[in-house]
Simulated scan of single mutants.
Amino acid sequence: MPRPLPSVLSHVLFAALLCAASLMPGTLSTAQAAPDKRNAPSRAIAYSTREDAMQFADEIAARRDLDRQWVRATIGNAKLLPNVPRLMLPAPTGTPKNWYVYRSRFIDPVRIQAGMRFWRNNASTLARAEAEFGVPAEIIVGIVGVETIYGRNMGSFRVIDALATLAFDFPESHPRARERQAFFRSELESFLSTESRTNENPLLPLGSYAGAMGMPQFMPSSIAKYAVDYDGDGRIDLVNNPVDVIGSVANYFKAFGWQPGMPPIFPVRFDEARLQKAVLLGPDIVPTFSADAFVAGGAVLDGEAQQFKGLLALIELQNGGDLPSYVAGTQNFYVITRYNWSSYYAMSVIELGREVRAAMEN
């Protein structure tokens, strides 16, 4: 069951407390709000002084039918995080990608051991999710491991600070600044809408510098759309409850078109005499080619891949100065990239899940 809406009176009282907190910095627990001093917001810049922030608060309140003073007080207590806008800028042009290096960040003994514990502790829930949603346990285990090492590193930024910073101070030098700022304004609105349906303090949730939360690092809009109360206790908890985490990740993938029983990748090699690599790489990671068309372009598939009835994409993974690696990606590979739009990320999820499974079978 969804959590009940707080009364109008509780919103008004809470808004008053938030306003009071802005005048008395010691009122809220700094240990809860920002335990890592490196992530502490600038005390000099509060969004309560920003006309654009307060105008947006009024717009949210009107659109979502929320208490105006509560929304203004919540956004007004957000602080600018000076380092966060810089973290959103793309890597300098000419920086070579390296799959070997990227992979080593996520497939290591620490994550594999933690993944084995997570799998064993939640084996029945993983099996249930696989049966109900069609998403293999190893994919869910791979996601949670890559994202937060199974809850070990869920982020130490106040979500309200991170979202406000990116909603109102997104770096103008970013090539997609207007689009990305609009995205974070939408996420801030979604966060406030969800928090308004609880009696909890919206200044306390912690997450990544982009505002992602919990073991699976869901953005606020993803929590609203895809998170599920998988243990039926009447609330959704992606921070402390692995049952809800597993169900929510599986539901996310199903919503984006996961196909049960379909491998996410197949091995691929090339017939250099008739290879049309530029043609095969043209659609990027979007599955476009039938198996016959893939082979006609010079790709060589083996085993079950030769009989595959779906569409394929040629996935190129650069390795710095070494030759790239290649795989054939299916619809399910593309679905993994809907979680994080990177083929390197998707491959890390797949390989971590496989490594954990293999370690458990040995």
Rank of each mutant, 00 (worst) to 15 (best):
residue 166 L to I: 08
residue 144 V to K: 00
residue 262 M to E: 15
residue 160 I to M: 04
residue 191 F to L: 05
residue 125 T to P: 09
residue 288 T to V: 11
residue 311 L to A: 08
residue 18 L to M: 13
residue 123 A to Y: 08
residue 182 A to L: 11
residue 98 N to G: 05
residue 77 N to M: 03
residue 342 S to D: 04
residue 163 L to Q: 11
residue 34 A to D: 13
residue 82 P to K: 07
residue 274 R to H: 14
residue 312 L to C: 03
residue 338 R to Q: 12
residue 156 S to V: 13
residue 91 A to H: 12
residue 225 K to I: 10
residue 57 A to D: 04
residue 88 M to V: 07
residue 80 L to M: 12
residue 242 P to N: 03
residue 222 S to E: 14
residue 324 P to Q: 02
residue 278 A to F: 02
residue 2 P to H: 07
residue 110 V to H: 11
residue 221 S to P: 12
residue 156 S to T: 15
residue 292 D to N: 07
residue 64 R to K: 08
residue 57 A to K: 03
residue 157 F to G: 08
residue 265 I to H: 02
residue 317 L to S: 07
residue 184 F to D: 03
residue 213 M to S: 02
residue 290 S to R: 05
residue 177 A to Q: 09
residue 199 N to L: 11
residue 31 A to E: 15
residue 105 R to G: 12
residue 142 G to M: 10
residue 45 I to S: 11
residue 125 T to L: 11
residue 70 W to H: 02
residue 130 E to R: 12
residue 281 L to G: 03
residue 46 A to T: 14
residue 235 R to D: 14
residue 215 M to C: 10
residue 239 V to L: 14
residue 269 R to S: 13
residue 176 R to L: 13
residue 256 F to P: 05
residue 338 R to T: 10
residue 217 Q to T: 03
residue 361 E to C: 02
residue 231 D to F: 14
residue 318 Q to E: 14
residue 210 A to E: 11
residue 245 V to T: 05
residue 127 A to R: 15
residue 329 G to E: 06
residue 185 R to F: 09
residue 78 A to M: 00
residue 62 A to F: 07
residue 245 V to I: 05
residue 183 F to N: 02
residue 83 N to L: 08
residue 215 M to N: 13
residue 174 H to M: 03
residue 135 V to G: 00
